[in-house]
């Protein structure tokens, strides 16, 4: 991923969205962050040519209207969108959710810690990994 590539955050909780935004700033990530609140909004955003195509999608699972797993199912069936890496960022450590997410070919699964400093650590890991990893065009 390139430093200028956008990150799309699909998250309905405002504080969680603030946390991600704040964390990215704290670790010095320069990638612009776009935020939508559910799966439907995310699909609309991705399919709107006016928006920049993100280099990474950070996805919450439990959201109104279209939840994270439903969103991933659509994205992975869409030839235009399927190459964008999706990392799940969720509260749920339920085995069922983990299995469902990976069987829909997510690129990663992170459980949000309650503790803010730990959250920063996790975001740093995600950023470092995707900045290092070669990504599809």
């Amino acid at each position: 991923m390139q430093p200028h590539q956008h990150i799309l955050l699909v998250e309905d909780d405002d504080i969680d969205a603030m946390t991600v935004r704040r964390t990215l700033k704290e670790i010095g990530a320069s990638n612009p962050l776009d935020r939508v609140s559910d799966g439907e909004q995310a699909l609309a955003f991705l399919r709107d040519p006016a928006n920049a195509r993100p280099g990474l999608i950070l996805l919450d699972l439990n959201m109104p209207r279209m939840n994270g797993l439903e969103f991933v199912a659509v994205v992975k069936n869409d030839p235009e969108l399927r190459l964008i890496p999706v990392v799940v960022l969720t509260t749920s450590s339920e085995e069922g959710d983990r299995v469902a997410a990976f069987s829909k070919s997510v690129a990663g699964y992170m459980v949000k810690p309650v503790d803010y400093p730990q959250f920063v650590g996790i975001m740093r890991l995600i950023r470092d990994y995707w900045m290092t990893s070669v990504t599809p065009p």
Partner: peptide
Amino acid sequence: AYVVSHDLKAPLRGIGSL
């Protein structure tokens, strides 16, 4: 249990972060 894990912990995390 699933609801508890999602719905109770999310606001909790918000309080902690704030």
